[in-house]
């Protein structure tokens, strides 16, 4: 176990962890950030997605040591109940969830994508989310939410 300093949601956070342990567990268990979710531990579903230096990253397969010196943003760092981010608001307005377990990954992936491509076509949104899985079948609402957010942010 070693002491590490992480930059999470704009704040410096000191944690004691196994350097090889995955970032997801440190975020959830040590920093009590429950936006990122455990889905597969294999980088296959996207539920654990966070932003690292602005890029979407799967925190279940990234060792915590690799997060040192990077800017990490979780779902909680995007917006709040009082002031949700435009993408979060898009999801609320489109009622884009059933169980909501995949929502974190969808919003975080969309954030990194829209930052790169603020005026996407419908097909580009589908491709951007192609590696994020949803089991409940909420895809159509999620697509509408991202599209709405893109318009809002443009």
């Amino acid at each position: 176990m070693v002491r590490l300093e992480l930059n999470v949601n704009g704040r410096k956070r000191a944690v004691t962890a196994e350097p090889r342990s995955m970032l997801l567990y440190v975020l959830r268990n040590d920093l009590a950030l429950h936006g990122p979710r455990f889905g597969c531990g294999l980088g296959q579903c996207g539920a654990c997605t966070v932003l690292m230096d602005g890029a979407a990253a799967r925190s279940c397969v990234i060792p915590v040591s690799a997060g040192v010196g990077r800017s990490i943003v979780t779902l909680e760092g995007l917006g709040t109940l009082e002031h949700p981010h435009a993408i979060q608001k898009g999801f609320i307005d489109e009622q884009a969830a059933q169980c909501g377990y995949c929502t974190n990954g969808m919003i975080m992936t969309a954030k990194a994508f829209l930052d790169e491509n603020p005026h996407p076509t419908d097909e580009e949104i589908r491709q951007a989310l192609a590696k994020n899985l949803c089991g409940c079948g909420t895809h159509l609402r999620i697509l509408r939410a991202v599209k709405r957010a893109a318009k809002e942010m443009a």
């Binding site: 959830r28 950030l33 429950h34 936006g35 979710r37 455990f38 979780t74 779902l75 909680e76 995007l78 917006g79 709040t80 109940l81 949700p84 979060q88 608001k89 999801f91 609320i92 009622q95 969830a97 909501g100 377990y101 929502t103 974190n104 919003i107």
Partner: peptide, 15 residues
């Protein structure tokens, strides 16, 4: 539950 889900404040059994 939708606003809590969207901002990461919804409590699942995993939490």
């Amino acid at each position: 539950e939708m606003p809590q889900i969207a901002v990461g404040k919804f409590t699942y059994v995993q939490d």
